[in-house]
C-alpha cells in the first residue's frame, strides 16, 4: 500500500455517512476513488478517515423527473455512458463522457465524484455549468440545492461544506430547441484536456439565445465565456469572429507544462469556431 495510514469506514446509509464524516476533521468521502486514491498514493493528501459511500443505496440511479435529468452521485461514468436517458435527454453529457480518461477509470469513477472534486480540466463540471444544472447536497444541517453557477468557487474548491455530501446532479432535459456542442483538445485521448469547451444554447431562428459556453483547462474553475456568449446571442453566427476575439477578455489561461497560456487562448478560439459550427448545423 502506498498512502499514509488512514481510517476507513463504510457508510450504511446517507445519514450514516454524514455521521461518520462528522467524527473526524478532514474526513473525506470515498466514491470511485479515481482521483482521491491517486492523490493518497502519491501522499499529496493524507485524510485521517475515508468514508466509503459505495454501499449507500439510492445514489446510483439515473432518473427523469419532469423536464430534468437527475444523475445520482454514485453513477459510474460507464453507467452514464450506457444510459439511454443520458443519451437522449442529456446529450451534452453523453458527448463529454467518452473523453473522460479510459474504460478502467470510467468503470469506477463517478459522476458525483468528478463534480465534487472539481478538477478545472475535467469535462463534467464544465457540462454541468453549461447546462445551468444544479447539485443536491446533504449535510448535517439537512438538504440543500446549489446552482452550478454558485458551485465552483476556486481551484478544487466548491460550495460543499465540511461534512456535506453531493448526492445528485440535475440538468434540464434536452428540448428540440436545445443545441449543444462539445470539443476538447488533449495530448492523447483520455488525458486531461489542454483546453475543452462544453456549450449549450437555445436555437432561435437562425441564431442562438441564452448561450452558455464553458471552457475548461483554462483557469481555476470551468470558465463561462460571457462576452463571447453575449456576442453570439446578439449577432448570431455572423458574430463568430467577434466572439472569438472576445475570448481575449473572457479567458486568462496561465502557462502550464503542456501548453502556454497564449496557446490555450488560441486553442479556445479554434474550439469555439468548431463548436459553434456544430451547433449551427447539428446534422452536418
Amino acid at each position: 500500500m502506498k498512502p499514509a495510514a488512514f481510517a476507513y469506514a463504510k457508510a450504511r446509509s446517507l445519514d450514516h455517512a454524514i455521521e461518520l464524516l462528522g467524527t473526524r476533521e478532514g474526513a473525506r468521502v470515498l466514491a470511485g476513488g479515481q482521483s482521491l486514491i491517486a492523490a493518497l498514493n502519491m501522499r499529496l493528501d493524507a485524510p485521517p478517515l475515508l468514508v466509503d459511500i459505495n454501499g449507500v443505496s439510492g445514489l446510483d440511479r439515473i432518473e427523469r423527473p419532469d423536464g430534468q435529468v437527475e444523475i445520482g452521485a454514485l453513477v459510474r461514468h460507464a453507467q452514464a455512458l450506457g444510459s439511454q436517458v443520458v443519451a437522449r435527454d442529456a446529450p451534452l453529457i453523453a458527448r463529454a463522457l467518452p473523453h473522460i480518461a479510459h474504460p478502467a477509470i470510467r468503470n469506477r469513477g463517478t459522476v458525483g465524484g468528478s463534480i465534487a472534486y472539481a478538477d478545472p480540466a475535467a469535462e463534467l463540471p464544465a457540462c454541468l455549468l453549461a447546462l445551468a444544472g444544479e447539485v443536491d447536497i446533504t449535510g448535517p444541517a439537512g438538504r440543500r440545492t446549489v446552482k452550478a453557477d454558485d458551485f465552483f468557487l476556486g481551484l478544487f474548491e466548491t460550495a460543499l461544506g465540511p461534512g456535506e455530501i453531493l448526492t445528485a446532479i440535475r440538468v434540464p432535459a434536452a428540448t428540440p430547441q436545445m443545441r449543444c456542442g462539445f470539443a476538447e483538445l488533449a495530448r492523447r485521448h483520455g488525458d486531461y484536456a489542454l483546453v475543452g469547451l462544453a456549450a449549450c444554447a437555445r436555437a432561435d431562428g437562425a441564431g442562438l439565445r441564452d448561450s452558455r459556453f464553458v471552457f475548461f483547462g483554462v483557469g481555476a474553475t470551468p470558465v463561462r465565456a460571457r462576452k463571447a456568449e453575449a456576442v453570439l446571442d446578439a449577432r448570431g453566427f455572423d458574430g463568430l469572429d467577434e466572439a472569438v476575439a472576445a475570448l481575449a477578455d473572457d479567458l486568462h489561461p496561465e502557462d502550464d507544462i503542456h501548453a502556454s497560456g497564449k496557446a490555450k487562448r488560441h486553442l479556445a478560439g479554434v474550439l469555439l469556431r468548431r463548436v459553434v459550427r456544430e451547433m449551427q448545423d447539428p446534422w452536418a
Binding site: 483538445l185 489542454l194 503542456h258 501548453a259 496557446a263 488560441h266 486553442l267
Partner: peptide, 11 residues
C-alpha cells in the same frame, strides 16, 4: 511535436 510547439512555429 506537441500542439504547442507546432502552433507556435505556425504563428
Amino acid at each position: 511535436f506537441t500542439p504547442e510547439r507546432i502552433w507556435r512555429a505556425i504563428r
